[in-house]
Design a protein around this nucleic acid. Structure first.
Lengths: 225, 225
DNA sequence: GGGATTCTTCAGCTATTTTTCAGCTAGTTG
DNA sequence: CAACTAGCTGAAAAATAGCTGAAGAATCCC
């Protein structure tokens, strides 16, 4: 699956930072800009699928940025962020081309849900099934296939394989995998990654480790022809 | 069954919110707009099957919106909402292309009934009976069939089966099921979903759980050949 | 009001999954 | 080639998700 690119345009460092971390953790490619001008420039070059746009910014405000982005004509979803006391009709009306808005403070889950709704609308081809050579992951069914075979995976095995698949060709350290798949709150040893990699290899009939490669001292890499 | 898309155009936040929740809960895909202009823009992009349209709105009023929507020529049902003292002849005559109207305040059940009537007219292929392999749900009669057998289901069992059927092939978490079938105000344990799944399995003669599958750590999925 | 049905809770059980661990293997380095 | 280290492995122990039967509560219908 092609990764989804998200651009954040907000002058508040705290929020931006929070969003970057959260969204990257969800597997999005994230870039940010601190004001409208910058945002437009970034968008030009980065070509995001979705823009998260603060209404209240110094210089060009969110509405203006929104109009300009939409004018470019590229397929693009925009979600506006606004403080409770700034919800004016322009937002409610979504007149300037925004697709949705969220009132601060919002929960991260709320944002994710809205984003997914938007993306499903605009880019139905994304998000559904993940491909990597003979491997396919259908996240809606929560099933993984090797060629035609349905893999029987435990929850953690599934998440791990999904993470590897999303990052095929890239070396992932055990520490990183632990973070992404087990979550930051896990405080066991890295050995558990080795244990799970083994069971994945078994289920992928990857005895000679051609598919999930061990990069000694660095981590693991999913290689598919 | 293809899901039915409903667009709500109303400037009253309370009503909109109420309708969104209620209709989503019924399995419709819902979007909303707060005024006429926005409504037309949303309709363009969202392509709803049915529009619920308030007559009294700032700016463009319901009649105008109605005419414009109908002019687009796409197959589309429109239900107008109006206050008791605004019921004028234009509405009664449904001259501008609206298909039905409701006087506020109205009961949610009333609205659902009208919607279903409209949808049956315009999209006979939708709305009537839900099919999933050997399963069929006739929502009008509120009956479920397995092949030729009529299933004797309790109200909750029926709703649960309907929700699973509408989302066949997709993993649904217990939390989500709880939300959609029991409603967000329910605050019991997720165990109740397990209990109901069991009784559905029993009534579907699904002892080996091929039909309603448990996806450990994720939820349940209705699989039919 | 009372009988029938339905809803909800609960605790024990089971099967699966997760985690740990100790010993082992195989690269790497000097 | 010896010493060292990273990663592998099999198995045991711990934890947990989901299943189940039953019982009490709530609701419906006559």
């Amino acid at each position: 699956m092609e990764k989804i690119k998200v651009l954040i345009v907000d002058d508040e460092e705290t929020i931006t930072q929070f969003l970057i971390l959260g969204l990257q953790n969800e597997g999005y490619i994230v870039e940010s800009a601190a004001d409208g001008m910058q945002g437009i420039a970034k968008a030009e070059q980065f070509e995001p699928h979705l823009v998260i746009l603060d209404v209240m910014m110094p210089g060009m405000d969110g509405f203006e940025v929104c109009r300009m982005l939409k004018k470019k004509g590229r397929k693009l979803s925009i979600i506006m962020l606004t403080a409770r006391d700034q919800v004016d009709d322009r937002i409610k009306g979504l007149n300037d081309g925004a697709d949705d808005y969220l009132v601060k403070p919002f929960s991260f889950e709320e944002l994710l849900a809205r984003m997914q709704a938007r993306l499903r609308n605009q880019f139905p081809e994304l998000g559904d099934s993940l491909l990597a050579g003979p491997l396919r992951i259908d996240d809606r069914r929560r099933e993984a296939y090797l060629e035609a075979e349905v893999l029987k995976l435990s929850p953690t095995e599934y998440e791990l394989l999904k993470y590897l698949t999303m990052n095929q060709g890239i070396v992932l350290s055990k520490a990183l995998i632990l973070d992404k798949v087990w979550g930051y709150s896990f405080n066991g040893e890295e050995n558990i990654v080795e244990v799970y990699i083994r069971s994945l290899r078994e289920k992928l009939h990857d005895k000679d480790r051609q598919m999930i490669r061990t990069i000694r001292g660095a981590g693991y890499r999913l290689d598919v022809k």
